[in-house]
């Protein structure tokens, strides 16, 4: 088991390494001059040259890469061109907002998707199954921004039930300690603010969670249907076990395996989707920050954020793989 975890950890190293090379290559090898991109199309050549020097772009390629890797390993992700602050610092301030959003979206997607998938699988080809299928088709076909805007219009503009933008009512001043709004409001002892923050979270989480919801529903349905046809489920029934136990223990215990893997993979989609969701809902997190950085040509911010997102995605899937091993004795005991 330990061996498996170590092996899995080691396998992530070349991917991280490759990731750094590819990100490096994007900046330095693809046509287009980042210095020119930063300064805009009509910048004077001297300025561009100065910028190239400042970025170290005049050095030989291998040296650029060594510098870049060295910085990376020291946790130096460069500085923002806009405010000259270390990128990592700003990232860490904004990341909690993204975590809050993605975790809420995941809870929504898994919390609803798994029961829906089980429901549909129990009655294949029924009306209920058909409705679930249509809903999951809409889930993967409706883009986040269309759903987000529609939710805003319906629930904020028309019904006025929920706030449309932001993480909390700007009139409430809460001391930012952890930068997790839900935690900070509780630390401040402000239940009203906590509820307000929670209300702000609902629409973005639904918008962001809709695609994972659809995928998780589909996978759960397929997995449960698959397992339900296994011989050992027939054995369980032949032993005279209650249907709840056959379903809850014998089927679900196995159906979890593909579902868990897919949950991990959805994290990637959630992080990417967060970029759009945060833009729609003016949610201050890494995603919105990245979009602002793109507009400002603040390319260290963009590059580092992508690197960090990919890193987090890898870590999450590593954790998922270990969790998978715990669920699956065939891996645990090998």
């Amino acid at each position: 088991m330990l061996q498996y975890i170590v092996r899995r950890l080691l396998s992530a190293v070349p991917v991280m390494f490759g990731l750094s090379i590819i990100l490096f290559a994007f900046i330095h090898l693809l046509p287009g001059d980042p210095a020119a991109t930063i300064l805009g199309q009509h910048a004077r050549p001297e300025l561009v040259a100065a910028m190239r020097q400042r970025l170290g772009l005049d050095l030989p390629l291998w040296q650029q890469y060594v510098n870049y890797m060295g910085d990376l390993l020291r946790g130096d992700l460069g500085r923002s061109f806009v405010n000259n602050r270390p990128v990592l610092d700003d990232f860490l301030i904004r990341f909690p907002g993204t975590i809050e959003l993605t975790v809420a979206a995941m809870i929504y997607a898994a919390g609803l998707g798994i029961p829906l998938g089980r429901f549909a699988a129990r009655r294949p080809q029924s009306t209920g199954d058909a409705i679930v299928t249509v809903v999951s088709l809409l889930g993967i076909s409706v883009p986040i921004f269309v759903l987000g805007l529609t939710l805003q219009y319906g629930f904020s503009v028309q019904l006025r039930w929920l706030p449309a933008t932001g993480r909390i009512d700007p009139r409430l001043t809460i001391e930012q300690v952890t930068h997790f709004m839900l935690i900070d409001t509780l630390l401040a002892g402000r239940v009203d603010a906590f509820i307000d923050a929670l209300r702000h979270l609902i629409l973005p989480a639904i918008a962001l969670g809709s695609i994972p919801l659809a995928i998780i529903t589909r996978i759960t349905r397929a997995a449960v249907l698959d397992v339900a046809n296994e011989d050992y489920v027939r054995t369980a029934r032949a032993k005279g076990l209650r249907e709840q136990r056959v379903d809850g223990r014998h089927i679900m215990r196995n159906a979890w395996l593909p579902v868990v893997t897919v949950l991990g993979l959805q994290v990637g989609g959630l992080l990417a989707g967060a970029v759009i969701t945060e833009t729609v809902f003016a949610w201050s997190g890494v995603g919105k920050w990245v979009v602002e950085a793109i507009e400002a040509h603040d390319y260290f911010v963009v590059q580092s954020s992508i690197l960090m997102f990919a890193f987090i995605f890898l870590i999450v899937n590593l954790i998922v793989d270990v969790g998978y091993a715990f669920l699956n004795p065939r891996i645990r005991y090998s």
């Binding site: 296994e230 050992y232 027939r234 032993k239 005279g240 215990r253 196995n254 065939r330």
Partner: peptide, 25 residues
């Protein structure tokens, strides 16, 4: 019928490799 299964009538299936649940002791 559930009480008859397992208690009064027991079954052994063809493929022992697939008839036992792989993730339960």
């Amino acid at each position: 019928v559930r009480h008859v299964r397992g208690r009064d009538i027991a079954m052994i299936f063809q493929d022992p490799m697939t008839s036992l649940n792989p993730v339960i002791t």
